[in-house]
Amino acid sequence: METALTGAAFGAALTAAGVYQPAVIVSQLRLENWHMIQAFLTAAAGSAIVVTAANVLGYVRLPPRSFSSLNLFARFDGNVIGGILLGTGMTLSGACPGTVLAQVALGIESGYYALAGAVVGGIVWTGLVLQPNLLPTPSSSLSKPQTRLSMYEQLGVSRGTMLVAFEAICASVVAATIYLTPPSTAKGGVHPVIGGLLIAGAQLLSILMRKSLMGTSTSYEEFGDWFWGLFSRGKMIGLPQRYNNMVFCSSMVGGAWLLSRFAPSLVAEIAPLRIEPLAAGVGGCLMIIGSRLAGGCTSGHGISGISLLSTSSVLTIGVAFAWGAVVGLLMG
């Protein structure tokens, strides 16, 4: 029940924030509109305060995220390569592993293709990459204990100092983009800052009810596990035991739909943007493979990981947005 309620809250928050729309995502990556960044940074900053308070009070013990390493060229190579694939997939599909669920709930056509591609990505990842070991297994628990996983450890400052600096950076970027860019003319919805605070509120609910942070890309890996558990060379094999993440993401669809049904004034009108089915499907597949390679997506790394001040999360999301912008500008 806790998982379902938290998922519904997250889905509703993403919908109210308006960051689920393909036009908002693509225009952000093309550096044409800053709605997504305003909501994203507000959500990350709010979540950082919530997570820090929960850790300090002893309610939870949530350590920074480890690096994802393929041992190809650096201990963070999985974060870099995964971020590149994630950014490419986001630009092609106009979706993220979490926002695509809200797109489906609101009947956005490209979202169906992106979700289908994401499901295929989960199946490919679990059955054709991990099981045959085609790539060195990305690991967040390498043979040697990892130290200095957080930004404050990397910089040699206290956690409190890093938190204050992070909050100041987020506030400055949000304020600057609000001042320098024209406001949205879409009807309905909430201001992106309010939307970001709603997402941070869903994070608070997740900590209080589940003592864990939000994330979505693991659900696609879970689905892949179930797929290969049911069908392997035409024979039934043992079924996996985990399914909580799939429950979380299914509830996100429900939460987004309920908000659009019973509080339509909180949902902005959908901006028109035509995304070809093939691009949406390929993008959906790439963003899941990239997310799993990096050990998290725009919610797991972007909202939750960054709120832990994790260096790997900042690196993954930084690469994803930067590379996505390159792809977006080339496509535009």
Rank of each mutant, 00 (worst) to 15 (best):
G290E: 01
Y243C: 04
I178S: 11
P138I: 14
S217T: 15
G196Y: 11
Q103I: 08
Y112M: 06
G255Q: 06
L293I: 01
N79I: 08
G11F: 02
L266V: 03
S310R: 11
A279F: 09
A114H: 04
S69K: 10
I194V: 15
S313D: 04
A171G: 06
P240H: 12
G83H: 01
E269V: 13
S172K: 06
A118G: 13
F231V: 15
G82F: 03
L309S: 10
G300N: 03
P145N: 13
P240Q: 12
G302R: 06
I49T: 09
I237A: 14
P138H: 15
I303D: 01
A116H: 04
M162F: 08
A13R: 06
L70Y: 09
V100S: 03
V104Q: 08
L309F: 07
G11Q: 02
E269M: 09
A279Y: 10
F73D: 04
T298P: 00
F227C: 06
L180C: 03
K211F: 07
G290Q: 05
V267A: 08
Y152H: 15
M1K: 12
S307I: 03
R292F: 01
G160N: 09
G318W: 02
T218P: 01
Q28I: 01
Y243H: 10
G160K: 06
L330S: 10
D77Q: 05
P63V: 12
Q203M: 13
I317T: 11
H301C: 05
C96G: 13
L155Q: 11
L293S: 05
R75K: 13
G324W: 02
S260M: 00
A17H: 03
E153P: 09
E221I: 03
G305N: 02
G234H: 10
V247C: 06
A44D: 00
G255T: 08
V129G: 08
V326M: 11
R75A: 04
Y220V: 02
A43Q: 01
V174T: 12
G111F: 02
S304Q: 05
T185R: 07
D225R: 15
K187Y: 01
W226P: 03
G255F: 04
M331W: 12
S141W: 07
Y113S: 11
I270T: 10
W323A: 08
N245W: 07
G78S: 08
A256M: 04
I194R: 10
V326L: 15
F67V: 14
A105M: 02
P183T: 13
A13F: 00
S217L: 06
Y112L: 13
I275Q: 09
G127R: 12
N245E: 03
Q146S: 11
S69F: 04
S184L: 08
G318M: 02
E153M: 12
M252D: 06
P63T: 13
A74G: 09
I25N: 08
L273T: 14
I303Y: 05
A45K: 08
L198G: 08
A45E: 02
G328K: 08
V56I: 13
S304H: 07
A320G: 05
L278V: 12
R75C: 00
G224I: 07
E276D: 14
R233S: 10
A171F: 10
T42H: 06
T91D: 00
Q154G: 04
V314P: 00
V104W: 04
M236G: 00
A44W: 02
G281I: 01
P272I: 05
N79R: 11
V80W: 12
Y59T: 11
S232N: 15
S250W: 09
L259A: 07
D225K: 15
R75E: 10
